[in-house]
Design a protein around this nucleic acid. Sequence first.
DNA 1: GTCTATAACTCGATAGAC
DNA 2: GTCTATCGAGTTATAGAC
Lengths: 252, 252
Amino acid sequence: MLPAICRAVLTSRRKLANQSFKRVFETFRMSDRAPTTPDKILDLAEAMFAESGYRAVSVRSITRACGVNIAAIHYHFGSKEALLKQIFAKRSAAINNARFRLLEACRPGPERPPMLEQILEAYLRPSLVLPNGDVGARRFMRLRAILAHEHATLSKGLISKHFNHVSGTFIGALMKELDHLPARGVYWRFHFLLGAQYFTLADPGRIQILSEGACDPADADAALAELVAFTAAGFRAPPADHHALILGTVLS
Amino acid sequence: MLPAICRAVLTSRRKLANQSFKRVFETFRMSDRAPTTPDKILDLAEAMFAESGYRAVSVRSITRACGVNIAAIHYHFGSKEALLKQIFAKRSAAINNARFRLLEACRPGPERPPMLEQILEAYLRPSLVLPNGDVGARRFMRLRAILAHEHATLSKGLISKHFNHVSGTFIGALMKELDHLPARGVYWRFHFLLGAQYFTLADPGRIQILSEGACDPADADAALAELVAFTAAGFRAPPADHHALILGTVLS
DNA sequence: GTCTATAACTCGATAGAC
DNA sequence: GTCTATCGAGTTATAGAC
């Protein structure tokens, strides 16, 4: 008796929910916004992972935020990890395209900055500054930075798969400009550049505290200009002298 | 009947375990090594957090690795978070002391590197290079780096509490050497320095892949020398010109 | 003080009703 | 194809036996 009543109530509710979902769906279609359930999940999951990390965000919280059923992620993607991989596939192509386009636009010229600064800007701009006010790329790069620290084994494969090509190309371009440095030196400095970039994107709030609010990594244009200036000088420095450090003996 | 037998077996086992633990305990006491259960937990938890992150390591896995009871962490520390706080309290004092001692040893001199390089070495050496082969400080700094990205809210308070003083002192010392820079510029560059340091300590394996093994952040002396050279040049660079970037219009 | 047992959750994943 | 219900394994934390 009671089960039957419950079932009837639930069924009617489900139908109502479906109808209202269909209305929302149609609205999205009309205005060319991300409409389908998979796209909505992809977008919201990316935002939530970038905000709080991969492990801290459950599939339940994602589906709840999307207003879709708990089973939707497994139905459309197969697993939580597969969802993350899809996010990487979607975003990294766009960022890499932007980097290559900017790299092609680099050329020497009297009215232009030195080539080193141009190459660095070409590499850093797509991850730091949002084109057309799209928060997507920046958000994804923060996710990348967090994941690299939070879950090294998972991130290592993803980063290698999607970014080895573009990073290698830029390291090659940098080496051509830096013939005073051995290859090892260029790798080390590119590593420091990555660290500074990740830290800016992850934005753990340290610089705001230390500078009492004078600096904010969310100010993307300032961050880009400061980072290009800093790293360009770092790359131009003479090769490191591994015997120049003298404080090693102070601590008994 | 059976319960009584079981209980007897368990009790004898427990007594045996206690006896052998006491032997180990005495051995540790004799050789002045970390002996007590809390110290053992503190040390192993730090190692495991540094290896895999905070969230990924359960109190169960820590107690299991220590060979102590599951309840030991809550008995001795109160909670998983309190254990982490204890780790921070223990380590940060030692690192900060080392940094202050090295900073005091900095002075200009004809046979010495420039003051800027000395100050940077004083700041970076205690976190990168292990004194007396103790892996503790380095391991802890990796934990710091990971936690800052993995769990910003938890890390922010801990870092502020233990490191605001030393960071402020070093920023002040850097500003005295860098009168060509506005304060904002020094803050930005210190932020990049932190990012490069964290990335080196967290060591997500990126540089090894890109350099095909030519560089390894685990080579602490090389990392320190390269990082000092890179950041010193970065700090000496003229103030960033926020209008020097020209590729902003390439991506329509 | 040290242990077991378990409470009280949350997680990812899935089977099966609709 | 969308949903509910639930499985099984994980988690932190604690009460109470010893």
